[in-house]
């Protein structure tokens, strides 16, 4: 564990807290992509159910995995049950087939072993790389976003961004290099760049997130 990875994981926790805070205080899920949230639940289920076959690295690791699986299911429940009337499915129209299909193909091409757990792990890595796209698509379509929603996306992007110095650190300090996680992680971070540009130039200067 190094500082970049720890701050990244912390940022991931903050993002989930921001999302729950937005939904429970406004009692709505307006502007939130159910599809992105469903993809994250699938990412966590396919990556973290390795707990079931004994992949226990540390208490930290196990507790985080359980938290991410549990909170993602709770978020799906909130969107689908109590806040269902506030969701507008007509703007959440990104085609999931392409993302899931692409991740499936990538997991068969790029994995460390042709075994069920390894292909599942690789699938979750590639799927996570693109899971934010339906959410960014909603922001692009509506041309604006509530500030709290942009803070949520920014915290998620920061989590991914911080994993890059973590990999550099691990490569030089531990000789650890995981090419699949690194390549998918860089793709994932690049997807956030446009968003971050507007977030830094507008939202952090007190303006509303609006596309030009």
């Amino acid at each position: 564990m190094n500082i970049f990875r720890f701050l990244g994981d912390l940022s991931h926790l903050v993002s989930i807290w921001l999302l729950l805070h937005k939904m429970t205080t406004s009692k709505s899920c307006t502007g939130i992509s159910f599809k992105t949230q469903a993809l994250y639940a699938l990412v966590f289920a396919t990556r973290y159910l390795d707990l079931l076959y004994g992949s226990w690295h540390s208490m930290y690791n196990v507790a985080m995995k359980i938290f991410f699986i549990g909170s993602s299911l709770y978020i799906l429940y909130l969107i689908k049950v109590p806040f269902k009337p506030t969701r507008d499915p007509a703007i959440d129209t990104f085609k999931l087939e392409y993302l899931v299909g692409g991740a499936l193909i990538m997991s068969l091409i790029a994995n460390y072993e042709y075994s069920f757990p390894e292909i599942l792990w690789s699938f979750s890595i590639w799927l996570e790389a693109v899971a934010i796209l339906p959410q960014l698509f909603i922001i692009q379509r509506t041309g604006e976003a509530e500030n709290i929603t942009t803070h949520y996306v920014a915290a998620l992007g920061a989590y991914r961004g911080l994993y890059i110095p973590n990999w550099l650190y691990r490569y030089f300090a531990e000789g650890f290099f995981d090419p699949i996680a690194v390549i998918a992680g860089i793709i994932q971070t690049v997807i956030y760049l446009d968003f971050f540009y507007i977030y830094f130039t507008k939202v952090l200067k007190g303006q509303k997130f609006e596309l030009p």
């Binding site: 991931h12 540390s58 985080m64 757990p117 792990w121 973590n166 290099f177 995981d178 996680a181």
Partner: peptide, 10 residues
């Protein structure tokens, strides 16, 4: 070299 099943990152 990456060993399968040793994914310690989240």
């Amino acid at each position: 070299e990456k060993t399968p099943g040793q994914h310690d990152e989240l």
